[in-house]
């Protein structure tokens, strides 16, 4: 069970990202976290596993307080929380198996991870998970050789390899096509139910969220403005969360991505020149 109590986050830049957020998530419950860009969704789930430090408030996982831990305590806590990322965040140049096994990093000593000599039990678990997500044939492929949907499956396997007690999922479908998005969402929700895992899923796509999750929390400007079952999310609630103009904002983000890709080609040319330049 996850309990969040009056969580507050103010960035150094002055942005007040979270304003006293409180809720609890029961075992096996899948929560969809929706809200416009900049509402604090990413900050919230990163405050839970302390990739971002909260300013005030408490987070408790199975009655153990997470906020305030440090050093090896923090490591042991993090390994109990699996995380799935927006752009997959796989280590692109490592193989699928290495990526999945990296879920054990919080458990094994450095020499084992360095030599890639994981305990056989970990390897067995990794094989079983790859079977479960349907990637048995891609074990030794490099992660950057996979399609988007396959990469996200590796991301799921990596998170489950941690034997998590909680799953944090950050925009799992943002870079996927509609069909793959559904498959991935279905897979995530299935495994959560199989393992009685509580999960928090940040998601842009409201209808997709309604299709799969048990409960929806709407965030706006760092505050919870909706908390209830998916069918309770009517037009009024949506306007409360999103307002009217935010759809434009999302479109602008897409255009930015396209520009980034153009820049990448120019970047390659510059890099070669730099090598020559400082020779």
């Amino acid at each position: 069970m996850l309990r969040i109590d009056a969580l507050d986050k103010r960035y150094k830049t002055g942005d007040h990202a979270l304003k006293g957020v409180s809720f609890t998530v029961e075992r096996g419950q899948v929560v969809g976290l929706i809200g416009p860009s900049g509402a604090g969704k990413s900050t919230l789930i990163r405050c839970i596993n302390r990739l971002v430090e909260s300013s005030r408030g408490k987070v408790l996982l199975n009655d153990v307080e997470i906020t305030g831990m440090s050093g090896s305590g923090l490591r042991r806590m993090r390994r109990r929380i699996g995380m799935i990322f927006q752009e997959y965040a796989l280590v692109e140049r490592l193989t699928v198996m290495e990526n999945v096994l990296s879920g054990r990093l919080g458990y094994v000593p450095f020499w084992r991870s360095f030599l890639r000599r994981y305990p056989q039990a970990d390897v067995d678990k990794a094989f079983a998970l790859l079977d479960r997500v349907g990637l048995t044939d891609h074990v030794d492929k490099r992660a950057d050789a996979l399609s988007g949907g396959q990469r996200q499956r590796v991301g799921i396997a990596r998170a489950l390899e941690q034997d998590p007690e909680l799953l944090l999922v950050d925009e799992p479908t943002a870079s996927l096509d509609p069909k793959t998005s559904r498959q991935i969402m279905r897979l995530i929700c299935e495994v959560c139910r199989e393992r009685q895992l509580p999960a928090i899923i940040n998601i842009h796509d409201v209808s997709l969220a309604q299709m799969f999750v048990d409960r929806i929390i709407g965030l706006r400007a760092g505050e919870v403005v909706f908390d209830g079952p998916p069918d309770g999310l009517d037009h009024a609630a949506l306007t409360e969360i999103y307002g009217e103009e935010d759809w434009n904002q999302m479109r602008a983000e897409k255009e930015e991505d396209a520009r980034d890709e153009e820049d990448a080609a120019a970047f390659e040319a510059t890099r070669r020149e730099r090598m020559e330049g400082i020779a």
Partner: peptide, 28 residues
């Protein structure tokens, strides 16, 4: 790409493990 490093850190990896899994493969 910092997101790859963040993902490794989120598994509970220690400093050297983050270096070995998150950073070295990217710069190799």
């Amino acid at each position: 790409d910092e997101s790859q490093v963040e993902a490794i850190r989120a598994t509970g990896a220690g400093g050297w493990q983050v270096l070995d899994y998150g950073i070295v493969p990217q710069v190799l």
